[in-house]
Design a protein around this nucleic acid. Sequence first.
DNA 1: TTGTAGGCGTTATCAT
DNA 2: ATGATAACGCCTACAA
Lengths: 366, 366
Amino acid sequence: MSQNNKTAARSRRGTNRVTMEDVAARAKVSASSVSLYLRNPEAVSPRLSPRIKRAIDTLGYVPNKLAGSLAAARTRAIGVIVPSLANAFFTETVAALQKEFDRHDYQLLLGATEYDLERETELVRTFLSWSPTALVVTGCYHNEATRTLLRMADTPVAEMWEIGEEPFHLQVGFSHVAVGEVLAAHLHQQGATRIAFVGARMEADRRAGQRRDGFCQALARHGITPLVIDTGNDVSPAAGGVALRQALKQQPGLQAVACANDVLALGVLFEAQHRGMAVPQKLAVTGFGNLPYSQVCVPPLTTVQPHAAEIGLRVAQELLAQLQRDEAQQQEDGDGADNNGNGGATKVVDVGFELILRQSSSQRFK
Amino acid sequence: MSQNNKTAARSRRGTNRVTMEDVAARAKVSASSVSLYLRNPEAVSPRLSPRIKRAIDTLGYVPNKLAGSLAAARTRAIGVIVPSLANAFFTETVAALQKEFDRHDYQLLLGATEYDLERETELVRTFLSWSPTALVVTGCYHNEATRTLLRMADTPVAEMWEIGEEPFHLQVGFSHVAVGEVLAAHLHQQGATRIAFVGARMEADRRAGQRRDGFCQALARHGITPLVIDTGNDVSPAAGGVALRQALKQQPGLQAVACANDVLALGVLFEAQHRGMAVPQKLAVTGFGNLPYSQVCVPPLTTVQPHAAEIGLRVAQELLAQLQRDEAQQQEDGDGADNNGNGGATKVVDVGFELILRQSSSQRFK
DNA sequence: TTGTAGGCGTTATCAT
DNA sequence: ATGATAACGCCTACAA
C-alpha cells in the first residue's frame, strides 16, 4: 500500500456508507435506474424493480439527502424561527406547523431568537444556507440585515403572529393593537376609570408593546390615562404580584389591571387575594393567552385567546399551496424563466382572536 | 444560442445563487482560499483576508451547507424525535435541547411520532438521510426496524425520558415504574384501600403504561388490587370526569384515584366537586406532570414533577461532550481507524423525579 | 426503459 | 500561505 495505486489513491475518508452505486451493483443495474426507481417506482420495468428493491433492503440503503438536495437544488426542509420555545403560544404553533408539513413530507428546522433581532439575522442566514423550501419567521418587524437576507433569498417567506408592515410573501396573524383596544373597551364599559397595564419585556417583545399601545390609545380616547408598569424580563406570577403592589402605591383607588399575559395576571390575582382585595368586586383583572389554568383559577380569568394552532395550520396550508403553484408554473416555463420562488402574490391572513369574558372582570363599577 | 457553446451548454438550472467561486473571483483569489478563510480566518494572510471579507459582504454570500456537509461528510444538525409536540413535557425538553445545541451552533431537526412506532422508524430513516451529528429519540422501546437503523448508523443515539432496555449510547430519563410505586406508596400510607388508576393511551404511551404497572404492582404487594380505567385516546378533563363516574359505579366506596397525568386529574377534581364528593376528605386524587394549573386548582393537586428541562439539558451536554471526545480521538487515529462515531462507552443518567404533596391527597383514611 | 456523463458547491489533499 | 484538483453522492439531460 504505497505508490502503485492510481485511481483510488486519494480516497478521502472512511465513508463506509452504503451508496446508490452499491445498490446498483448489487442489483446489477445502473445507478440512474435506482435513482429513478426511488423517485418513481412505476417508471422502472417490473423485471428490474424487485431486484432493486431487494438490494435496497438487504443493504439497508438510506438515501443521502444532502447529495440529493444539492443536485436537485432544493431541500424538503422548512425553516421555522420563533422567539422562544418556553412560550406555550409558539410551541402550539410549531406543533401545528410540524404536523401539517410532516404530512407533506417536509422536515422542520427549528430556531429560537430569544427575542433578539440580531439573533434572528443569524438564524435566517444559517437557515438560508440549508436552501430550505420556505422560511417561517415570527412577527413582521426585522432589522435591516434580516430584511435584506429575506428579500434576496429565492425562498418564500411567511411571517406569523402579527400583521402589518410590508409583507414578504405571506402574513398570518392578528392585530395586537386591536387586542389592546378590545380589552380597554371592555374595562371602560365596566365603568373602570383608574386602570393599570402590567406588561413584561415590552421593548423586546414588540407584540406585547402593541397590545399596550392599543390599550392606552383606546383609553386615551375616553380621556383615561392608564398607569403602565413594566416588569422587565420577569414573566412570572411573582412579577405580577410585585407589579400590583407598585400600582396600588401609585394609584390607591385602582379599579382594573390589564396584564400582557395570563402568567402575570395570575400573580395579580394571588396578590389581590393575599391583601384581601376582592376580585372582581374591588379589582377587575384581565390577561392574555387563555392558558389552561386561566379557567380553573379563582376567580376564572377574563382573557384573550389567540388562535395559535390555527396560525400554524394556515401558514402551512398557504405555503404548501403556493409551493404547488410555483411548481406548476415552473413546469410551464420550461427552464428559462428566472422565477424567484415567489408566486408573485403576497397574502395577508387575519385569523383574529377571541375575548373570553370570565368572572375576574364581571363586576360593574359605578 | 443554439449549438456553438461547448462548456456552459448544459447548465442545468438557473441557480443564480452566489457561490464561493463568485466570491473568489471578486476577491481575485482561489476558491480554496475563501474556503479556508471561512473555516479558519487566521490561516489566511492579512493581505488576502480583507479582500475576501469585502467580497463576501458585497456579494451577500451565504455558504451552501448542503454542499459543505456533503463534502465534509458531516452535518451540524441534531435530529430530535418526540412523541408529540402537543405535550408540554416534550416541548419543554425540546426547548432545552434547542437552547443548548444552539449555543454550540447545531441545528435542530424536529419530528413527532404521534406515539406510532412505525412512524418513528420512518422519521429515523429520514433523519439519518441528513447525516446528522447525533440523533435524539424518546423512550427506549423501538421496533426492530428502528433498532436496526439506529444500530447500523454511525451516529450517536440518545434516548430520553426513560431508562431501561439496552441503551445505544446514552439514556437520560427516569423510571416510570418507580413513579407508579411512589404514588402507590403514598396513597397506601394515607390509609386508602379502595383505589383506582385512571390512564389514557396506555398501550401506545409505554411510559404511561409503566407508571400504571409500577402502581399496580406496588399495591399488589399490600394485597390491594386497584381498579384500572383506560380512557383510550381521550386525554382531557372531560375524560377524567367520565372515568371517575365509571370508577364509582364499579366501586362505590372508592377512596383514591391516581391519574396518569394532571389533565385527567383535573377532570376528576371537577367531577368530584360536581357530585359533592369532597376532595380530599372523601376522595384522594393524584396526577402526573405538575402542570402550571395544578398548584392553583381547588384543591391543589398532589402530583409528580418530571424534570423535563433537565433531561434536555443533560442529553445535550452529554452528547456534546461525547462528540468532543470523538473528535479528539479521530485526530489521534489519523485516517485509518474505522471508528463508528461511538466513543465506545454507553451512559445511563437517571435524573429522577419529585413527588409533590398537596392538598388533594392530604387526608388520612382510617 | 436503461445507461452515460456532467454538474451541484463545497471540503480536503497535494503540490507549489 | 495559496492554488489546482479530486472526491462527496446524487440528479438529470441526453443518448442508446
